[in-house]
Design a protein around this nucleic acid. Structure first.
Length: 112
DNA sequence: TACAAGCAATAGT
DNA sequence: ACTATTGCTTGTA
């Protein structure tokens, strides 16, 4: 059991709440955990000691791009992220953009 | 404790 | 493309 901060714990809980076939944005997760810094979410996910328990691959950028994966902004890690999402029904365009933006999971409080 | 540097982002121009 | 903002984590003294 690794040691994590309250913030990290909240992030992992939030992203763990993302159902399969859905994705959330860094900003959305950030807001869900009570912060306004999407970067902080990335930091927590990057250091996620609960992988792969934590579906960090279901977290993408607000631009509907993949963003990063395990510290990599591009390369084989990103390909893996795309494949992982594809397995859950979330497909991305050749430009690395979400083909179905409605797959985005909205944050509690936001209306949909 | 105090200071500096880094980060898987986002919004505005 | 570039700049400004944000806030949490890490490393060093």
């Amino acid at each position: 059991m690794p040691e994590v901060t309250e913030f990290q714990r909240r992030v992992y809980e939030a992203v763990s709440g993302i159902p399969a076939g859905r994705v959330a944005t860094y900003g959305g997760v950030a807001q869900a955990v009570g912060t306004r810094s999407a970067r902080a979410v990335g930091q927590a996910l990057r250091r996620n000691p609960f992988a792969p328990q934590v579906p960090c691959h279901r977290v993408i950028a607000a631009d509907l791009t993949l963003g990063g994966f395990f510290g990599a902004e591009s390369g084989p890690e990103l390909v893996q992220k795309r494949e992982l999402l594809a397995r859950e029904g979330v497909e991305f365009d050749a430009a690395g953009r979400l083909r179905e933006p409605e797959r985005l999971l909205r944050v509690a409080g936001a209306r949909g």
